[in-house]
């Protein structure tokens, strides 16, 4: 049985980790799998099925999530401000988002589903906040918005919320492929003083408790950003969460929209393909 699996691993185009996450491989042994470009990634097996994880989550956090749903999401306040920003004329060319994309930028409905994606000019991965800033600089002649500032989050959140209820469909074909693999390597790389990787917690030990926190499975990790996080007491982006986790691992924190974080965002969003976008989200 194991021999068959190892032959499969060598021949399959898809990296082994994706299959592990989707649960197509059974009980695995400790081994290293390789990506197309030859980078070794650690092969990790989920300790429990997703159904078992959901059961544990419901038991541990069920009442609390119900309470959060009742109280409502403070991030919804930003949506109105985002709408105003989309209609506001800024920059040297006298344009607003609405001048190209229709009133309230409504033509951007569904735009967020394909992000992050490859961009030829950037020679890298374009994320949604970066796309908004690029658009502001090139088309409107306006200053880019500072990442994690109130206006930036409000505008991103508003335009992304137009795609609410639509499934994520990120493509990793063609030129995006090497960046996807870099993101995967970063996701599986052991780093920091504590020698953790993203995957060891969120793939292998998802569903266990680290002190009083239940470690979350990486399904539904990328479909609701920017979101309101109770620990922050304010709204933040996925990359802020990445940086927070890296800090807890006592590793180096790359700056916002740096290449590492963008590749990682592509990898994680691809894992969440098919999940419905629900912005703004709310997390603990």
């Amino acid at each position: 049985m194991y021999k068959k699996i190892s032959i499969l691993l060598k021949t399959l185009v898809l990296p082994a980790a994706v299959m592990l996450v989707t649960g197509t491989l059974g009980v695995g042994t400790w081994a290293q799998a390789a990506t197309q470009s030859g980078n070794k990634i650690e092969k990790l097996t989920p300790s429990m099925s997703y159904a078992e994880y959901q059961k544990r989550y419901e038991k541990y956090y069920g009442d609390f999530t119900a309470q959060m749903a009742e109280e409502g999401n403070p991030a919804e306040f930003l949506l109105d401000d985002g709408k105003d920003l989309a209609n506001k004329v800024v920059g040297s060319k006298g344009k607003s988002c609405a001048s190209c994309h229709g009133k309230d930028a409504l033509q951007l409905k569904g735009a967020a589903t394909t992000f992050p994606k490859y961009n030829a000019e950037l020679k890298g991965i374009m994320t949604f906040p970066l796309q908004i800033n690029t658009c502001r600089e090139k088309q409107m002649g306006a200053k880019p918005l500072k990442y994690e500032s109130y206006d930036q989050l409000a505008l991103t959140m508003y335009i992304k919320s137009l795609s609410n209820g639509m499934p994520i469909k990120v493509s990793i074909d063609g030129p995006a492929r090497p960046f996807y693999e870099k993101g995967q390597v970063a996701y599986y790389k052991r780093q920091g003083q504590l020698n953790f990787s993203c995957a060891i917690c969120h793939v292998q030990y998802a569903g266990y408790k680290a002190r009083s926190n239940l470690i979350s499975n990486n399904k539904h990790h990328a479909d609701h950003w920017p979101c309101y996080r109770l620990k922050w007491g304010k709204t933040g982006s996925l990359q802020r969460r990445f940086r927070g986790c890296l800090k807890n691992m006592r590793a180096k924190k790359p700056p916002f929209q740096s290449e590492e974080l963008r590749n990682m965002e592509l990898y994680l969003t691809y894992l969440n393909n098919g999940d419905l976008i629900q912005v703004p989200g709310m997390r603990m």
Partner: peptide, 9 residues
């Protein structure tokens, strides 16, 4: 001072 203080729902 953070923006958006006093928004009510």
């Amino acid at each position: 001072m953070p923006q958006g203080i006093g928004k009510i729902k």
